[in-house]
């Protein structure tokens, strides 16, 4: 269980990015963080990843406080952030240095197969499209088999078709080990397709506006999903209006 308890973040210049965020994410749940820009979505994710420290409150994973990068927590950034001097396979296996070589090779091969990049294993990141690079980044995070996977708008720079394709890859990978996923997105449609619940944030400072259960079974039926998307969109609109 991933627990945010009264989490706040104030930057050194006095900017209040987050205030009083409390939410529990069940094991294996996919939680979407939805909100306009500047409502602290990415900040919250960076706190959970241990890249930044909270000014108040705690984030715990199964009772353990998360205040630095944790082996059970993986993160996919907004941009792929592949290491340009490593091949695609080496990038995917980057976090597996502790494993034996055969085990690492096996896991990397499986992950690449899973995201449809097996034939690109030995190519450089520069040779791949944006969508393929982001798939590599997702595989790199999944292959370490974290309990919690944090995704920071990983699809925002991609076109609609590629994005849908990646949703499929993400759910496919998720189904294998069922990690808890926290997905930051500003796209309510994406939240409705991928998540079990959506937390709508409002800005200045970032705080929870509303929490929605998304009761659509997977694989998602776009029509059944439409009403959830509408509801979420309305809530997001209200949150944006509330913030002026």
């Amino acid at each position: 269980m991933l627990t945010f308890r009264n989490v706040s973040k104030t930057y050194a210049d006095g900017t209040r990015a987050l205030a009083g965020i409390s939410v529990e994410v069940a094991r294996g749940e996919i939680l979407a963080l939805v909100g306009g820009s500047g409502c602290g979505k990415t900040t919250l994710l960076r706190l959970a990843a241990g890249l930044d420290t909270a000014s108040g409150g705690t984030i715990r994973l199964d009772g353990e406080v998360l205040d630095r990068p944790h082996p059970g927590v993986g993160l996919v950034f907004q941009e792929p952030r592949l290491l340009p001097w490593l091949t695609i396979a080496q990038n995917v296996g980057f976090g597996l240095a502790d494993l034996s070589a055969p085990e690492r090779v096996r896991r990397v091969a499986h992950a690449l197969e899973r995201v449809g990049l097996a034939e690109h294993a030995d190519r450089w990141p520069r040779d791949l499209s944006g969508g393929q690079q982001q798939r590599t980044a997702i595989a790199r995070a999944f292959v370490a088999q974290p309990k919690v996977l944090l995704l920071d708008e990983p699809f925002s720079a991609l076109d609609a078709v590629t994005r849908q394709d990646l949703h499929g890859h993400l759910l496919g990978l998720w189904a294998e080990t069922r990690p808890t996923i926290v997905l930051v997105t500003h796209d309510v449609g994406e939240a409705a397709v991928l998540a079990d619940r959506a937390v709508v944030l409002r800005p200045k400072p970032g705080r929870i506006h509303d929490i929605f259960a998304i009761a659509t079974p997977r694989p998602v039926d776009p029509d059944a999903n439409a009403s959830t998307t509408r509801q979420l969109r309305a809530a997001l609109g209200a949150s944006l209006r509330a913030s002026g």
């Binding site: 890249l51 993986g74 993160l75 941009e79 952030r81 980057f94």
Partner: peptide
């Protein structure tokens, strides 16, 4: 810095 953060995430 972004690449250094990748290293930090993998501890």
């Amino acid at each position: 810095r972004k690449l250094v953060e990748v290293g930090r995430i993998f501890r």
